[in-house]
Amino acid sequence: MNENLPKNELLRGYLLGELAEDEADRLERRLIEDDEFFDLCEAVEADLIAAYARGELKTDVALHRLVSSPGGRARLALARSLNSVADSRLSESRTVVPFRRRVAAVVRPGAQWALAAAAAILVLIGAFWFTRQTPPESGAQIQEVKNSLPPTSGSEQQPGPSKTKALDTASQTPPDRPVRQDERTSAKTPKRPEPLKAAVFELALTTLRGAERAEVQKFPVPAGTELVEIRLDVEGYEDLEVFHAAVRNQESRETVWEKGGLKPRRLEWGPALVLDIPAGRLPSGRYEVTVTAGTTDVSQQFEVARENR
């Protein structure tokens, strides 16, 4: 038995009839001897049935066998009912918070510039009056005051949070330090590159192979998508540290993307390998992503459905 495989993966393979005979025999011996391992096997079976009840798994021979016996039908009925009660509880607990535009935080562009212009005029008048009243050696202070004005020519800022923040700064307080002349003249902030339009998929890996996999997830890729980000759940494989990933087109058998030296990232739901694949390499079709680390080899199939405009 491959002790490196996560136990739930091994048990899933056993329940779906994917293990070799001798491996299944050894596993059953352990099931008889180890009560906790047996409980885990029943738990994995219940999870499979619950996923099947939600329509998340396609029917195949092994699943049909699990849910067709009298005991299996009872477990399926329990799973359906539990899913139903749990989902109705979820929908009852959700409260809709109406979106309220934070009007106070957004200052209209026209008003901002008008305010800035008015402030500049006042400062100029004050500076003019000041120079008329004070000795010449204070001239350096005037230049510093002038330099501290927010840039009135302004940058071509895009709508969104960044612009909101910039507007707040301009309308409320001047910068904490004098702005140098070269900074003022180059006050147009460089245009931040637009982020690529990305579609994000999440997949769980499996050691199971062959045409009898229980599930092939289908991912829609909207028109205009430039990048496909595939997040592979590698929980249980974190100790392997460095991975090689390859994506192969199942129809043409061609490897469309591969990369080595990949390390898991900690996402909010757990450790994952993140693959950034140019969308052009994934036309509609079925693919298999294979991840290798040492002697461990896991994979998963998925289907891409490109959407037209």
Binding site: Y52, V61, V67, S68, L76, A77
Partner: peptide, 23 residues
Amino acid sequence: LEGGGWPPPECLSEDESPYLECL
């Protein structure tokens, strides 16, 4: 059995409300 093409199994009973009520 391995010929495939099996439809999803029927529920234990078509009317699941007694089951749901008991649950």
